[in-house]
Design a protein around this nucleic acid. Structure first.
Lengths: 205, 205
DNA sequence: TGATATAACATACACCGTGTTGATTTTCCT
DNA sequence: AGGAAAATCAACACGGTGTATGTTATATCA
């Protein structure tokens, strides 16, 4: 795998690879996708693939990183707004929206066979900010508890996210974000809340 | 892969395979474990492997299912006690303890490269019971919200579990179970609680 | 205990994906 | 237009896979 520049040609082949990859992922888990069939589907030479990636896994990782870079760019304005407090729901909504926009890849990277690293990279975007907030409010709480809470809540959000994805992302990003916040803030008490905005069975898409 | 009976010999080979498998998993992700090397390490013939499993993934799945059966057996007395209410912390503690007892496999099945199916199968053991409880207490909450809550909390528990595992399971199962319950019940309010049982850095195993 | 069934072994085989190489053609960029 | 860089093509050795063969060892049951 020799390094290749940013030629116009490489852009095209990368796009072809990505397209073929996501299509194949609709049919089978990535573990059983061979480089050979990927290249055939993409209509490129197998040697060309090795020019850009070492591996199927390497491919996925690069695609993930590109996405994450995009996400961070979208979130930057929300995270650096120093004049006002961070709005967790706003941030979550933005993230969920980004995922919706990249659903072809995200259904995989966050789905059944996706690697867990990606999911956590995702939530780590706003991690430090969150932890700082927690620490500020709960000064005499042991770091251990804070850490546990963070892990629980991160994983919880991802779980909710996965449910959302497997349901076809029919509800709006904002609604999911509000659910997530509600649960984080109140735990099971969230279920007792009266019509928090994420209500109801009515199809108010 | 022809089906084989429950001979004494098969028990031995299966045990050899399991041992070799878990040892290899300490060194590399299962994706890069070949059947060949597995059999060499186990000291069995490659053809023998195919007599029992079709695949490395098939192997893992069977091992998982065996574990789950064990878990359910351990939990049965807690779940069927009709004379008194279910005690969530007790149940969680029991599950976490089971995992600790099978840490050789669980560090993999729940770890970085484990498949997510297993984690959810795990929490589905007590799923219906939980949902029934929720539904009983929150009669006029939409099923959608309840479902979301369940997914969030399930995933959260698994996340906490994974952190616990990657930390080497040093703290007791009960302590983790109490943390999990605290977060589920109070959300971020959990951080404000004064010395709930799961306190502190003191090693009160 | 001895006969039969069954599992594990040993070996061989064709098949396929991998990763790499070198020569050739096409495309881009200035 | 001309040099540089990327994509193509053909070919290669290598290693794991899955299957089939016959043989040996061991468990099960009458």
């Amino acid at each position: 795998m020799k390094k290749l520049g940013n030629d116009h040609r490489t852009q095209v082949t990368k796009m072809l690879i990505r397209r073929a990859f996501t299509e194949l992922l609709k049919q089978k888990p990535m573990q059983s996708i061979s480089i050979k069939e990927l290249c055939e589907k993409a209509g490129i030479n197998r040697g060309t693939f090795y020019g850009h990636y070492t591996d199927i896994y390497d491919l996925l990782e690069q695609l993930e990183d590109e996405m994450l870079a995009d996400f961070e760019k979208s979130l930057e304005p929300l995270l650096t707004a120093k004049d006002r407090n961070l709005n967790p729901v706003e941030i979550s909504t933005e993230i969920f929206q980004c995922i919706k926009d990249n659903s072809d890849l995200c259904t995989v990277t966050l789905g059944e066979f996706g690697d867990k690293k990606f999911a956590f990279k995702l939530l780590n975007i706003g991690r430090e900010k969150c932890l700082q907030s927690y620490a500020r409010y709960f000064k005499n709480t042991s770091p251990k508890k804070i850490e546990c809470f963070y892990y629980f809540v991160s994983a919880g959000c991802i779980g909710l996210l996965q449910k959302w994805i497997s349901d076809g992302m029919t509800t709006s990003a904002n609604e999911i974000a509000q659910m997530a916040e509600g649960i984080m803030l109140h735990g099971i008490g969230f279920l007792a809340e009266k019509a928090g905005g994420a209500e109801d069975t009515g199809e108010t898409k």
